[in-house]
Write a protein that binds this DNA or RNA. Sequence first.
DNA 1: CTAGGGTTAG
Length: 417
Amino acid sequence: MTWIPWNTQLRELAKQCQYLQALTLYRQMMRCGSTPNAFSFPFALKPSASLHLPFSGQQLHCQVIKSGCSPEPFVITSLISMYCKFNSLVNARKVFDENPISNQLTVCYNALISGYALNSRVSYVIALFCRMMEMGLPVNLVTMLGLIPVLSEPGYISLRMSFHCCCVKLGLNLDFSVANCILTMYVKCGAIELARNLFDEMPKKGLITWNAMISGYAQNGLAANVLELYKKMEGADVGRDVEQRIESSGLRLNPFLNNALINMYARCGNLVKVRATFDGMPVKTLVSWTAIIGGYGIHGYGEIAVELFDEMIKSGIRPNGAKFPGPENYSCMLNLLGRAGRLNEALELIKSMQVKPDGAVWGALLGACKIHRNVEIAELAFEQVIKFEPMNIGYYVLLSNIYSEAENLEGVLKVLE
DNA sequence: CTAGGGTTAG
């Protein structure tokens, strides 16, 4: 019997996360005399699967070694990725080094690079990247995605320079998606001129290309350049093929670009443009709402901001997504909710935060409690805020004022202690 | 039968 039906079934079970059944089938397959091959068990090396299996991926690794034959590339890559996902970089490296074939496979480099990058092992990342280019291996989108966590880190300017030199020296032939990634990297670290050079050199420009470049200008407040590119984009629309036309009309409705624009208009206080851009968007994301609410908020239109907040909730979007920005944005929203007297909602918002609340967030809540005389929440907020600033006398005064306004003498005495 | 993994907005 051939192994194809077995493998197909194994893969099907693995896809449905029925790992124990897959294991049973795997054993049955061996009893029937079929030799499992590389296609039979990479699924077992996936971290999600290993958690459900009665043996660890490492044990399976031992089994592979015991079998005597050198593992096939699929297995090697699976092993590397498995060890990386469990942050066992030493083991991942061992697999890479012990199997010379890894040295010639982009996939193996990709797996190891992303493992090092996620653990901020910068020197390893750059060494591996250089090595794979010296080997003449193709760098692809997946390689770049692995590199991004390290290259976008604000502190690594020298690394980015050496990365850039590396690319130039070796004459890296940039394919479309790799170029997009490098462009993004330049934009993220504010190297806007390098970004523009690359942008101009790119023979093909896609949605992400235009987007990254225009939003790069928007982020740096270069409104004139935004307009210039906009016009260029429209120009590119004429006389080009249908595909390009669709791409560039998609750009105008593109949430990434529009959100960047809302933020730019908000920063320069053009609330009319903010509103128009926002209203023109067919689909509004959490980022769009955050941008417009923040825009009205910082320019003194707290009431409109709170109304928009309600509208957002009504439309089914909640501010607890994993991608909601840092604590500063929360304190802005909290100030708005707090001043409007909606303290319970403010508290709920804090509880839903994915980022760790800082002192300012709790301080804002405490301040709002003073205005709206809410002792209960004030006690809660106070308890948190002094964890951050135990020596700040202002908070003690604030709490005792809240107590005294509520004619709670006991509380006042407690604070004085 | 196929490993590495999905970029841009805040």
